[in-house]
Simulated assay, not measured.
Amino acid sequence: MNKVRICATCGTKYPADFNEEQCLICEDDRQYVPFGGQKWTSDSDLAQKHRVKIKQLKTNVFELIVDPVFAIGQRAILVLSKSGNILWDCIPLLDENVIEFIRGKGGIQAIAISHPHYYSNMKDWAETFDCPILLPKSEKDFIVNSTDKIQFWTADKVDFWEDIQLIRIGGHFPGSSILWLPKLNGKGIMLCGDTFNLSLSMKHFSVMYSYPNRIPLPIKDIEGIKKKIRKIEFDEIYGFWPYQNLVTEAKKILIQSLKRYK
């Protein structure tokens, strides 16, 4: 094959010069290749069968999802602020409807991504909106479609404007991160991707090396995560799937969940 391809399982977009038959993201033991084998799709096929659905979560926070669900089914979250808009995580479809919507809100000034499973077509997003992508250097080997828009960071956090911070938490990947919005609501909002995975009961969070393959984290890693979370103030958490909006007792539930790991 010598054409641009998108992995149908994880949504990662590969360039035309990628000659392997398997998705490098899905081959990693944190992800998986389906029983039926590797499957690919294309931008045109994705655009014909899907659209980007936009939903307002709060005054300055919008959810972007691929509808109907494609691949992992994650959402991206657009955060609006006077000093610049930030796209949290990435989805594998960028259509004219969402481009027009975002430009009407002032564009995107930075993209921050929780971990490699959501790199998807980040190059397209960054080049369309002419903005940088902030990625931890620890995950550079998972970048399969590079761009000069990528800026690597190696510290424990990245400071944006209006006190917004991209904070390394670890766990799922060494560079797994959260985006902390301290001024949007009460004590703040945490956007966590699947650095933390909220249960369907809305009463428990899990944190694992691999969610689909049920591979746990070492307890020493959990202890490090506990210390970091205690230092962050927040009232609400928004995760990687549309139902994962916890708007009451969010920090209490997360701390209680982490205490289960002993």
Rank of each mutant, 00 (worst) to 15 (best):
D43P: 02
G106P: 08
K137W: 12
K251S: 12
D141I: 03
N121I: 01
M190K: 11
P68L: 13
I72Q: 05
T9S: 02
D221M: 05
I237A: 03
T195L: 01
I189F: 03
V69Y: 05
T128F: 05
I86P: 05
S146Q: 00
I225N: 06
L258I: 06
D89R: 07
D235M: 08
P132I: 07
Q31D: 11
D28C: 07
T154D: 14
I6Q: 08
F173L: 09
G186W: 10
D28K: 08
K228N: 12
G239A: 13
Q22K: 15
Y209A: 10
M202Q: 12
V158S: 10
P136Y: 04
A71D: 04
I169T: 07
L64M: 02
K82T: 13
F142T: 08
P15L: 03
Y119F: 13
S199V: 06
T59H: 04
P174H: 09
V98S: 01
H204C: 06
N121G: 03
C26A: 03
I91Y: 03
L80I: 14
K3G: 07
D95C: 01
R260N: 04
K157A: 14
P34A: 08
I237T: 05
K13H: 03
E127Y: 13
E236T: 15
M208E: 15
L179G: 11
Q256N: 14
P218I: 01
G104C: 02
P212G: 11
Q22Y: 05
K157Y: 15
K226E: 05
S42T: 12
A76C: 11
S83Y: 15
S199K: 01
I54R: 04
Q109I: 01
I102L: 00
R103A: 04
C90Q: 00
W88V: 07
F142Y: 15
K252T: 09
F70D: 06
N121E: 06
I222N: 06
D156C: 03
I25H: 10
I86W: 10
G188I: 04
A110D: 13
P132F: 12
S138Q: 14
V79N: 09
L258V: 01
G170A: 09
K187F: 06
F62G: 01
Y243I: 01
Y119L: 10
W241C: 08
G36E: 13
F240I: 15
R168L: 07
A155V: 00
E139R: 00
Y261E: 10
K55D: 01
N121S: 04
N2S: 14
N213S: 12
Q151F: 04
L254W: 11
D194S: 06
K140N: 12
E100H: 05
N245K: 15
I229A: 03
G107H: 00
Q31C: 11
